[in-house]
């Protein structure tokens, strides 16, 4: 977790995007050929309300340097208010992350509508810069008791 080699460090960002707004914005960024850093790896869920905090911890455990959650603006949620539920969980996660030694800045939540491809591009750019300053998380392979136990339960 040092910032020494920030020059050639390329952070890995897992994006968990809702199907209707953020994922559509990512599609639009594509059709508009907007270039943004290659660090973002998007996973699609139907609603940001589907985002289980465990997904975030699991991503960090598996080598993500940052996690970007994105859903619809308030009032735009395809499922009434899944995004509000996401917001609640996000605030909780922000509090829990430091307890694992993870800087809360590594988790980001953004409301990105289907037409806001440009916002997506900006957010990714900013986030990459921020994560470069923070340096690698370097958690891969580190046993995180809680997450590991959860994985056991799951299987």
């Amino acid at each position: 977790m040092s910032a020494d080699n920030s020059a050639d460090f390329e952070p890995k960002i897992v994006g968990i995007f809702c199907n209707w707004c953020a994922y559509m914005a990512a599609n639009l960024a594509g059709t508009a050929r907007m270039l943004y850093p290659p660090n973002l790896r998007v996973i699609r869920v139907m609603c940001s309300g589907r985002i289980d905090p465990q997904f975030v911890f699991y991503a960090f455990k598996n080598g993500a340097d940052g996690v970007l959650l994105a859903g619809c603006h308030h009032g735009d949620c395809h499922y009434i208010e899944g995004n509000v539920k996401c917001l609640r969980r996000y605030k909780l996660m922000k509090k829990i992350l430091p307890q694992f030694g993870i800087e809360p800045e590594r988790l980001r939540l953004e409301w990105i509508s289907a037409s806001e491809a440009d916002k997506l591009r900006k957010v990714v750019g900013e986030f990459v810069e921020e994560l470069k300053k923070l340096g690698p998380l370097g958690f891969r392979g580190v046993e995180l008791g809680v997450v590991e136990a959860e994985k056991q339960v799951r299987i």
Binding site: I43, M46, C47, R50, D52, F55, Y58, K85, R154
Partner: peptide, 28 residues
């Protein structure tokens, strides 16, 4: 099919077809 209940379920009893926890973990 929003999956909000799935994220809320404390005992992982609620699941969503095509977006089961396992599938998303595998994707991550």
């Amino acid at each position: 099919g929003c999956g909000t209940c799935v994220a809320a379920c404390p005992s992982k009893a609620a699941q969503q077809h095509l977006f089961r926890d396992e599938q998303i973990y595998a994707e991550i």
